[in-house]
Simulated assay, not measured.
Amino acid sequence: MEETALRRERKICSALGLMLLAVLLCSVVWSFLMSGLYYMTNGAIPYVLYLALTLVGHYALSLPLAFRMVRRVPRVEPARRPVEPLALVRWIVIGLSLTWVGALVGVVVNQLIYLATGRVSSNDLDQIIDMMPVGLVVLCVSVIAPVCEEIVFRYLLAGRLARYGQASAAFISALLFAAFHGNFSQFFLAFAAGLLLAYAYFRTGRLLVPILIHMAVNFSNSGVALLLPPSDTAYALYGFVSLVITVAGIALLICGRRDIRWDSGWRKPTLRAVFLNPGMVLIFAACFAEFAMTAFLY
């Protein structure tokens, strides 16, 4: 890649990295402000409302800012193709399988970290969700978050990285999606899900498809467990169904691997262009700091 073209590509990727950094900073600042407001008012804000606003309220600030920051970066519109209902169901099953396997890997990694540091493992996100009413979990975790995250990571990010080819765009956006979660519990499942969601977006050319897959996966992983009656039988049945879906998803993925198709781009991605620029360095540094704080301080 000639030097002039390299500078142009680095500038484009830096803008995308800075966009994600702005979204992350909005989340951190918003959480800080909400915590301060809650304690300054001595809990006058209902705790459930406080949790809900903390989880998703920052998107009202970050989404308009994200659109503005990358408005000059050209998108590659994927070809619009018909959406077959069976394909959507297949992607959902594969998505559930990938996230459950990824979650298991995340648990193992987390346990190793806690064993190495001599601390007791915890999952703050699960604790927050357990304190919220089911309806609020469905609204925040299974509706609002998937819509906003798909806009950021598939429409704004992957759609602009597709200049390097859809496969490269899916990998880079999935890596950033996973890093953005800021903890090992969700890193592996988010990376696997990010690849699938990007593929569904590129294959159909419709943002609604990955949104629906994301909603279904989040609801299955969070909402369904809360709806179960508190009995060993219900939990055992849920575990059995999860195992069956996991095996089915892996089988579908293996059987359909030869049908996976990615459109090529007009630029070849290089390490210097995509990652060695101010925006990407800053967002990865911020995510690394979040990982370190989550893994070793909490």
Rank of each mutant, 00 (worst) to 15 (best):
M1T: 07
E3A: 11
A5N: 02
R8G: 00
K11H: 10
A15E: 15
M19I: 06
V23E: 11
G36I: 08
Y39H: 14
M40D: 10
N42M: 10
L55R: 12
V56R: 03
L65N: 12
P78I: 15
R80N: 11
R80H: 14
E84G: 13
A87N: 09
L88Y: 12
I94K: 12
L98A: 15
W100F: 12
G102F: 08
R119F: 02
G135M: 04
V138I: 15
S142L: 10
I144S: 03
I151H: 06
L156R: 08
A162N: 05
R163Y: 08
G165I: 04
S168E: 06
S168F: 05
F171R: 09
I172F: 15
L176A: 12
F177G: 03
A178I: 03
F180D: 04
F184M: 14
F184G: 01
R203T: 12
R203H: 06
L208Q: 12
A216N: 13
F219H: 10
V224L: 05
L227W: 08
P229Y: 12
P230C: 11
F240M: 13
I245D: 00
A248T: 02
A251E: 00
I254K: 07
C255F: 04
R261C: 02
W262P: 00
W262N: 00
K268T: 14
T270N: 01
P278D: 05
P278S: 05
F284H: 08
A285Q: 11
A286Q: 09
F288Y: 05
E290D: 12
E290A: 15
F291I: 02
T294I: 01
